[in-house]
Design a protein around this nucleic acid. Structure first.
Lengths: 226, 226
DNA sequence: ACAATAGTGTCTGTGAGACAGTATCGA
DNA sequence: TCGATACTGTCTCACAGACACTATTGT
């Protein structure tokens, strides 16, 4: 019934198919800013413009597998948290051909990126809350995709634990608070914040040191949370 | 570069493409229950099983246009509220061929459905909170799609106004409360509920009558809301 | 001693939850 | 008058917000 890209209907007629891609919004926190990983396009059209990493979905590959293939190829990592965002299906969103894009977002601690990196990642990290400055350089409809991801992060920071995805296993409460403030885009009160998050954390008993001020206790996420 | 279903890569090789479909979860409220519209499949495979209405997305048609085409074809209506839910991309979710499904949910008042219906709709409406009883009759992976939609409704009922999509323009507060109770799956306190919703409603001044008890004021959603 | 940041105690106001009461229809 | 449902008043308690206070490091 399905032969290599054509769809044969019951009346025998044959239809063209759209292509399907996944595009990935890789977010991280660097210099107290929420940043996104973008690549400079090397091919026409839109050559030189900034684009999300993405791949065409193969016919024998699930969407999640395509995401993992893309993440592994672009960053050298597997084992990264990601979730589906939205599927963009306008006819003319890509000038080359009809292509439907399933967007995902991945959240990574900056330590992971710069640690085993191949190539210099930080050159390709852009402040998400200052997109205006690179607005003209963004390819296709990737600007609104990023806006969509930014909103999702803001919302999910309120009622889920995505903030932890930006931190290593062990972290301090001031670090965690800073992440929340960046994701939510507003200052928080220390005492209230600590009351709120402490029930889901476990003390390690260890402290930071060498900071020329009072040390900070190190925590990890409790077993039953995460 | 793109010829009728094949994707030609830069090295000249040619890849097969997946097909793309939209599947629609049409929800309504009937007999104080949240129900979903399902069709009995007339073709193999899974003939006789219950399936969501859906269509294959054409190459010159956006996802939203495909949804509208499907809604119009199955229900005879345009102008229905719908939103995208999730995109399902496992390789073997359909035994016939590789097909990626973008699921949407549509919310309609039962009056709209039964009003200008073509055919008897209520025969195809199933209680969403009693899926176990028809679990074996559900086609493909449509059961988990419905579960996904059910959850979305429960969540969005808390912080958005989707409840109104199930009601006509004019309604009473007891009616509205009942809708919320069905969507959330729990009883609410009358006084608290009224305090919460009344700020976004406008009184019409009209009342219900003939009900053998105290009449109920009729409301509509205020201009700046909805 | 001082700068700097970590961490705590406590007051206040708002709002959800719970429940008891009053109002108004048809029969 | 009574059954039934619409609608209102008010108490309590938990918790977010706000702010002032104490604690502990390096220099």
């Amino acid at each position: 019934m399905d032969e290599a890209g054509y769809l044969k209907a019951y009346d025998g007629s044959v239809y063209e198919k759209p292509s399907v891609a996944v595009d990935i919004l890789i977010f991280t926190i660097e210099d107290n800013k929420l940043k996104i990983y973008l690549l400079e396009r090397e091919e026409m059209p839109q050559r030189g413009k900034l684009a999300l990493p993405g791949v065409i979905v193969g016919v024998r590959e699930s969407l999640d597998e395509a995401v993992e293939r893309c993440l592994l190829g672009k960053t050298g990592f597997s084992d990264i948290y990601f979730e589906q965002l939205y599927t963009w299906g306008e006819v003319d969103r890509d000038p080359r051909m009809r292509i439907i894009s399933v967007s995902y977002m991945a959240l990574v601690p900056i330590e992971t990126l710069s640690g085993k990196s191949k190539g210099d990642f930080t050159n390709w990290l852009f402040d998400v809350d200052d997109l205006e400055s690179i607005e003209e350089r963004l390819a296709f409809d990737h600007k609104r995709m990023i806006a969509c991801g930014r909103e999702r992060i803001r919302n999910k920071a309120e009622y889920t634990h995505i903030a932890f995805a930006f931190l290593p296993e062990i972290f301090t409460l001031p670090q965690l608070q800073k992440v929340y403030e960046i994701l939510l885009g507003k200052k928080l009160y220390k005492a209230n914040f600590r009351r709120k998050v402490s029930p889901m954390l476990t003390e390690t008993g260890e402290y930071t040191c060498g900071d020329s001020h009072r040390p900070s206790m190190l925590y990890r996420v409790s077993e039953n949370e995460s």
